[in-house]
Design a protein around this nucleic acid. Structure first.
Lengths: 338, 338
DNA sequence: TCAGGGCGTGTTATCGCTAACATCGAGTGT
DNA sequence: ACACTCGATGTTAGCGATAACACGCCCTGA
């Protein structure tokens, strides 16, 4: 006696139960206007009774587009990119889109093209590339044809749709804040030089100093890690003329704090520090860190908007959005003691 | 003169170019054995020439399964869950699966069921639920039928496939390490009580103390944040008999460090601390933090294995895996000074 | 010599949906 | 009262794959 496992109900099952054609069911599902209220209710009842759920694969096949958005991101747990991703997933979910994440180990042309192609195979509705480095940014150029695509965190100069945190504005605010406290100049410990984030932060820092007519000390290079911040801090701690530091992110600042502490230079009494990112634990550094907080939710929202605008038609108002961050004042900044 | 945008090549286009039927193309693509070598080459050449890429939606429709794995996770940037997710995405990508992430704001029955159902609509091949709390764990019970599903970080007692970090073993190691340094007892600042992680860490801590025949101090409750660690630390700093603390995670430890520093209790001279997670910046806390490092890659690998085993057939060897973490020694532990 | 069994391949049906067109009755204007 | 429009619904034809079966052909064994 064979008894097939009853498969999930399909549209025709609903149609049969409601006494209409499957097309009418489709119309109800897609909110088509020309359906009598009574019919609509009958169909809805049948849907509920059967626990029917539309098959997205079938819909994707016929329309050529799924309700999926592909995101290409680097495989890291850096706070910025991770937060951005989480915020974007939330925003997309709210708009009824699922998000498929394609992690990539290195941000080079091949990896990124690959990841993008894999997404296209899934017939995603659009693609978001988190492209914080020059190489990633270049790779995006290769593939931008034929599908809605938004770059996040890429080259502010690019002409295709882009959303970024306004790095320069944040850095300007941080630097100015230190100058207003009375410091003669501000040193900068920078992120990796192939990141636009680093470049933008350097630009903002430099511009604040120049605007104030001050000398611009050499950039102290680092990567994003606390380890490299520590190394930079060891050097800066030995230089008595250094009284104010703008660190390119909070983890660098953490490393600097430790280096200062080890050499007996008190923060903020002897040296003031401002970070960037406002990681959740920044308020519990020793001392609590003054920093710049990017608005990841806003970035995510703008990104989705830009993406959906392309899906809808193609007329995107201003395809570049630059979201300004906020200064968060805590206890790592004070007037110079000397 | 209408000129239709030429659509992506489909299997029939390849077939025509290669002079075979579309079915043969399908056979080549799926590695079916009964294809002549010469034919296979001809088909491959045609595929390459057209730049053909199979339409996953079509395949998903006919097979009823896509090459997608759905992950349900809480919408947070907590280090543990975020790392787990990243590691899993990498592991899945390596195995040729895309990952669709369904973030959920609260880990309750409704949200989780919803997220799972959304994934089923996409005809995912399997689902992974990161279910670190009791409520999440319960919700998983509701939906486990009819689709491969693995729970990560859930109730170690559950009988369905599960992969977890061995919290108890990690906590036992941390506590024992402090005892071996010579401390009379070890205090514990715990994570939220509805997390299995917290429960397991409490269990391991208690068991280490009991094994050593020592008194078990009351658990100091907190959540996972540095803020709550700071509050707990303020209290503990006032108690001179407290010389050793096992914090349920590194951010709690960070908050405790700050509280100690403010009250002039030196770490590790006056009080020793061990954390849990080994966040990247833990080595740059003041002082560098001794902690427990979970192996997220191993967890991800096991999870994927368990999931694919269910897809393949259903005979999963041991459906519960418990991955042991490692002790990372740094500078926050020393013998008691008194 | 001839039935039978692989092997390589083609043909047809099907998955569950949407798009496009067909149909049918009820208003509407003159 | 008649053609005409329009709203509500049904019918048919795909989307691009896989599955199941059909079909020659060559080889084998009695």
């Amino acid at each position: 006696m064979e008894h097939k496992t009853s498969r999930d109900p399909a549209m025709t099952d609903v149609a049969r139960l409601a006494g209409v054609s499957h097309q009418t069911v489709s119309r109800v599902l897609n909110g088509h206007p020309n359906v009598r209220e009574q019919t609509r209710l009958r169909v809805r009842a049948a849907i509920a009774e059967l626990g029917y759920r539309p098959n997205k694969a079938a819909r994707a096949l016929v329309t050529g587009r799924s309700q999926l958005i592909g995101v290409v991101a680097q495989n890291s747990t850096l706070y910025g990119p991770a937060s951005l991703l989480a915020a974007f997933e939330a925003a997309a979910a709210e708009a009824g889109f699922a998000v498929s994440v394609g992690r990539v180990n290195v941000l080079d042309r091949n990896s990124i093209s690959d990841a993008v192609e894999r997404h296209r195979d899934q017939r995603v509705a659009g693609i978001v590339v988190i492209a914080p480095t020059a190489s990633a940014n270049d790779a995006v150029g290769d593939v931008s044809a034929g599908i809605p695509l938004v770059t996040v965190d890429g080259d502010p100069e690019r002409s295709t749709p882009l959303v970024t945190v306004d790095q320069a504005a944040g850095a300007f605010a941080a630097t100015t804040h230190l100058l207003e406290a009375g410091h003669r100049t501000v040193w900068h410990v920078s992120g990796p030089s192939d990141w636009f984030d680093s470049l933008g932060r350097i630009r903002g820092w430099r511009s604040a100093l120049e605007t104030a007519g001050l000398e611009v000390p050499p950039v102290v290079p680092a990567d994003w890690s606390a380890a490299s911040g520590y190394r930079a801090g060891q050097m800066l701690a030995r230089m008595p003329e250094v009284t104010a530091i703008f660190a390119a992110n909070d983890h660098l600042a953490l490393g600097i704090l430790r280096a200062m502490s080890e050499r007996g230079r008190r923060v903020p009494h002897d040296v003031s520090i401002v970070g960037f990112d406002d990681v959740p634990e920044a308020a519990y550094f020793i001392p609590p860190l003054t920093t710049i907080r990017p608005d990841f939710h806003a970035v995510a929202k703008e990104t989705l908007e830009l993406l959906l605008a392309q899906v809808g038609d193609g007329d995107v108002g201003a395809p570049q959005r630059n979201v300004p961050p906020a200064l968060v004042k805590r206890d790592s900044v004070a007037p110079p003691s000397a």
